[in-house]
């Protein structure tokens, strides 16, 4: 066999792919979605709390939010997942048994929250102070004005960056395989990797990769679409967000402090 066709076989062995496909669809895909979606929900809620704490007038809220963000953005995702997933496992064992998913979701959420918190904060701070004044002049308290007027506008402006973070989550969900998964708990990456390991052929892993693209590429286009809509829709002062997806990147929030 010539080297080229060997290479071809290594990645595009249709039989190997066909063999892995059913498990990918019935086990891997749902599990990846469960991990990513629950972490997205929890991470967004935590992120919003961090964002509000981050712009609070109280130092005792601002400070912890700052430290949290620095820590969870600064650590490699793999390290965080291991630290939480393994470190808290004895505790988890007593509460929900040996299932690694709760701690996996928790770790993913805590990481995502650090990024999403910065995204939301940048968005909220980009809303003009006059909006807060307008709402307060009607009789809304600071909290009501934030909740009803400022936060909805701020979040809208950073939706593209938020969707980017969901893409990162989908990819990072593959890291929970560190925590040890039984057959039915395996997500896309782990299933691909298992097939690759037993057959010595990478085709199943490539198939897993295609599934990831199936999830992430439409989201990428959704980002662009939302971005275009926001730009066309009205002349919003979109904050300059420069959020990278790897833990080294930091968003660059701009804009005024709405107090």
């Amino acid at each position: 066999m010539d080297p080229l066709s060997t290479l071809w076989e290594t990645f595009f062995d249709w039989d190997a792919m066909r063999e892995a496909l059913p498990e990918m669809v019935t086990v891997g895909l749902p599990n990846t979605l469960i991990l990513a979606v629950s972490a997205a929900l929890l991470g967004s809620v935590l992120g919003m709390l961090l964002a509000v704490a981050g712009i609070s007038r109280t130092r005792w809220l601002r400070w912890p939010a700052r430290v949290y963000t620095d820590v969870f953005r600064g650590l490699p995702a793999a390290a965080t997942i291991l630290l939480i997933g393994v470190g808290l496992a004895p505790l988890g064992m007593q509460v929900w048994g040996p299932n690694p998913y709760p701690l996996g979701v928790l770790a993913l959420s805590l990481i995502a929250a650090a990024y999403i918190g910065e995204i939301f904060r940048a968005g909220i701070q980009s809303v003009e102070a006059a909006q807060l004044e307008g709402a307060r002049a009607l009789g809304f308290s600071w909290g009501e004005a934030m909740r009803l007027v400022i936060v909805p506008q701020g979040v809208r402006r950073v939706l593209p960056a938020w969707v980017n973070q969901l893409i990162a989550l989908i990819k990072d969900s593959s890291l929970v395989y560190f925590l040890g998964l039984v057959a039915s708990q395996r997500e896309l990456f782990r299933i691909g990797q298992d097939y690759a390991a037993t057959t010595g052929n990478e085709s199943a892993l490539l198939l897993a990769g295609l599934f990831y693209l199936l999830l992430t590429v439409p989201l990428t286009h959704a980002v662009n679409w939302i971005d275009r809509r926001l730009r066309q829709g009205r002349a919003v002062a979109a904050p300059d967000l420069d959020v990278e997806l790897d833990p080294a990147g930091a968003p660059a929030p701009t804009g005024k402090d709405p107090r």
Partner: peptide
């Protein structure tokens, strides 16, 4: 103060309507 502001309407130079 919040109750007071409900009794006193205010109109601004830049309108301050909620754009969303």
């Amino acid at each position: 103060p919040d109750a007071l502001r409900q009794r006193i309407g205010m109109v601004f130079q830049q309108f301050n309507l909620f754009p969303h």
